[in-house]
């Protein structure tokens, strides 16, 4: 039996439906004892990391997940579930589970200068967290100020022709990152077995995990920067993308998890 952890984070039934489609039984629960004793654990996510952690602590789910991790239970985190396994998250400055060292960071909201590929996390310009709209949305996915003007864009704002000629060394990032994007597998993992280089996955998020140890990174995705979109350590694996909404490639990873023996 696969336990799907309910921490007040949105649509868990879509993950349960996908698991059931693959022919496996699952139960949705917020009971810490059931979680700690589970055969396998999935913690999907919609919602903000801070709210999720708060809910977990209130119910003792955080300790249950740590216990499951220590007792080598196969564990799978999805979306915000891929962020709360870090030490902390920039979202609400939340302390998280610390199963993988590092933190969840927000996408550059303003702009990126120079070659995007050379852009580093340290280059982050600003993060107007307080301005973002609240709401029960995926992984801090809600946002009203999706673009911010680049510094010198005003001069060409009314002239589409001249914009074509502008050298794009300043670009803006649409946040949340929402839609289909690729996965570059940087290291083999049993859960990524069968995934092809051209496969794409469905993302809806504003934050992404930044593991300290590169050894924890199994797959990366490019969106403004290259970020870790599939991470793992020992009996834990997590994807920033929604396995339950990514078509057959997503189901393939989910199926691999259902039979995974770490």
């Amino acid at each position: 039996m696969i336990v799907i952890v309910d921490y007040g984070a949105g649509n868990l039934t879509s993950v349960a439906r996908a698991v059931s489609y693959l022919g496996y039984d699952s139960v949705i629960t917020d009971n810490p004892e059931k979680i700690a004793a589970a055969e396998r654990v999935i913690f999907p996510g919609v919602g903000a990391a801070g709210a999720a952690m708060e809910m977990m602590q209130k119910k003792g789910i955080d300790l249950a997940l740590k216990k499951a991790f220590e007792s080598k239970t196969p564990m799978l985190g999805i979306c915000v579930g891929c962020q709360i396994i870090m030490d902390r998250s920039e979202e609400n400055d939340a302390l998280c589970l610390g199963l993988i060292s590092g933190e969840a960071r927000e996408f550059f909201r303003n702009m990126i200068t120079g070659n995007m590929n050379s852009c580093t996390i340290e280059g982050k310009i600003s993060s107007p967290l307080s301005e973002r709209s609240a709401g029960a949305c995926s992984c801090g996915a809600s946002s009203n100020d999706k673009f911010t003007k680049p510094v010198d864009s005003a001069k060409s704002v009314d002239d589409t022709k001249s914009m074509n000629d502008v050298e794009t060394d300043q670009v803006m990032l649409k946040v949340p990152h929402m839609g289909w994007n690729g996965l570059d597998i940087v290291k083999d993992h049993p859960l990524l077995k069968g995934i092809k280089a051209e496969d794409e996955f469905y993302f809806v998020h504003s934050y992404f995990p930044v593991p300290v140890d590169q050894g924890d990174v199994y797959g990366t995705t490019e969106y403004g920067i290259v970020f870790a979109s599939a991470i793992g350590r020992d009996n834990l694996f997590a994807t920033q993308f929604h396995l339950e909404k990514s078509g057959e490639p997503g189901l393939m990873i989910l199926r691999n998890f259902c039979t995974w023996k770490p």
Binding site: K149, M163, N164, V166, L173, K174, H177
Partner: peptide, 19 residues
């Protein structure tokens, strides 16, 4: 206005697949 134009031929929007 047409800030979007600035990008839709640039790098960012092309990063996501058209649906």
């Amino acid at each position: 206005t047409v800030i979007r134009k600035f990008f839709s031929d640039g790098d960012i929007l092309e990063m996501l697949s058209k649906r």
